[in-house]
């Protein structure tokens, strides 16, 4: 049995047929070919699949797809505007805050969620904001530096 799931994805309305057991990660990656959310652990541990649902960061792998009906879902695909990278993307790039890049989409979304609510976070608040996102390359120092640079206004919209 399949259901029609309608929601807003990066500002555009989408409709897709999903099973009741499909996670949001299944819906994004397998149905809609939105592949920035990564299937890391598929267990809620690593944070590589983090997306925003109505502005809140969630693990797409632990979110049942049908629960986002009518909601706004944001992924890294929606970060850039008019072909221009988001300040966080530019800061991550310039600070070498991605090595292999697997955790990067989740890091970017976690950082966006943090700065949307708290544009001037302390270092401790930044660390807390990304502490649910594992990075095996250990880029935490550079990720924090990149977020600090954005918070300091070095990367304007």
């Amino acid at each position: 049995m399949k259901y029609v799931l309608s929601f807003n994805l990066n500002g555009l309305p989408v409709d897709t047929l999903v099973k009741a057991t499909d996670t949001l990660l299944d819906v994004l990656r397998e149905k809609l070919n939105v592949v920035s959310p990564k299937r890391g652990c598929d267990n809620g541990d690593c944070g590589a699949c983090t997306v925003l649902v109505n502005g809140e960061p969630v693990r797409a792998c632990l979110t049942i797809g049908l629960t986002v009906a009518g909601k706004n879902v944001q992924t890294v695909e929606g970060l850039q505007q008019d072909g221009k990278l988001h300040p966080l993307q530019r800061a991550f790039h310039e600070h070498y805050a991605a090595q292999c890049g697997f955790c990067t989409p989740g890091m970017l979304i976690a950082a966006k969620a943090l700065l949307d609510k708290n544009p001037k976070p302390t270092r401790e608040q930044i660390v807390e904001g990304i502490s649910g996102n594992l990075c095996r390359c250990g880029t935490y120092v550079e990720v924090v530096e990149a977020i600090q640079a954005v918070a300091a206004g070095k990367y304007k919209e």
Partner: peptide, 18 residues
């Protein structure tokens, strides 16, 4: 079995001074 058993460092494990 998973990353709750095999614990790798997070941002919160960064030493205050590096």
């Amino acid at each position: 079995q998973d990353l709750t058993d095999y614990v790798i460092t997070t941002a919160a494990d960064m030493p205050p001074v590096m």
